[in-house]
C-alpha cells in the first residue's frame, strides 16, 4: 500500500511519460544505427562489404580509372556487417534515424562515393593512391622509407622496391 502511494506521488510530480516527439525533442541511444556513410579517402575498393551485405544494398563498380561504391538507403537493413568487415574502417553508420520520406524521393536516397585512380609514379600504371594512414601502419618502425612518396607507387613496384631494400639485410 505504502509503495503504491509512493509510485502515485512520484507520477504526480513527474508528469506525463509521453515523449513529446513530433512537437518536441526526443531521445536517441548512443548505439543507434542509421544511415550509412562511406569515406572515399579510405575505401580501397576491395569489395568485401558487397560480398557480405545481407540485403545486396551495396554495389561496387570497378572501372579502369577508379571505382564507385553505392548504397541504396531503402535496401540497407542497418545490420552493420559492412562496418565489421571493412578492413580500412571506411564505412560508418550515422545515428540518423529520420527515414520517413515521400514516394518521389524513394530512389534519390543513395550514398554514392567515387575514387579516382592516379598513375603510378614509377611505371605509370593506373593505381589507387594508398592512404597515408595505411602506409604508416605498413612501414611502422622503418625509418629509411619515405612513406610520402609511396602513396603513388603501385603494389607491383612497391614489392620490387621492398625486395631490393631487404636483399642486403637478409641473415647470413
Amino acid at each position: 500500500m505504502a509503495s503504491y502511494l509512493k509510485i502515485l506521488l512520484r507520477n504526480l510530480i513527474q508528469g506525463p511519460s509521453t515523449d513529446p516527439f513530433p512537437a518536441g525533442p526526443t531521445f536517441e541511444p548512443d548505439s543507434i544505427r542509421g544511415k550509412i556513410r562511406i569515406d572515399p579517402e579510405l575505401c580501397m575498393g576491395c569489395g568485401i562489404c558487397v560480398h557480405n551485405c545481407v540485403s545486396n544494398a551495396l554495389h561496387l563498380e570497378r572501372r579502369e580509372d577508379g571505382h564507385t561504391l553505392t548504397c541504396w538507403d531503402n535496401l540497407c537493413c542497418r545490420c552493420a556487417t559492412c562496418v565489421m568487415f571493412c578492413p580500412m574502417k571506411a564505412i560508418t553508420l550515422l545515428p540518423d534515424w529520420h527515414t520517413a520520406h515521400y514516394q518521389d524521393d524513394k530512389y534519390a536516397r543513395i550514398e554514392q562515393k567515387s575514387v579516382t585512380y592516379e598513375p603510378c609514379s614509377v611505371c605509370g600504371k593506373k593505381m589507387r593512391p594508398v592512404p597515408a594512414a595505411l602506409l604508416k601502419k605498413l612501414y611502422a618502425g622503418k625509418t629509411d622509407v619515405d612513406a610520402e612518396r609511396l602513396t603513388h607507387v603501385c603494389p607491383d613496384c612497391r614489392q620490387l622496391e621492398d625486395s631490393k631494400r631487404n636483399i642486403g639485410q637478409l641473415p647470413a
Binding site: D19, P22, C77, W97, T99, A100, H101, Q103, R109
Partner: peptide, 15 residues
Amino acid sequence: VNVPGCPPRPQAIME
C-alpha cells in the same frame, strides 16, 4: 509515404 528501417523506430513511424 515510405519509412525504411528494419524495423523503423517508433519515432520514425510517427514522422
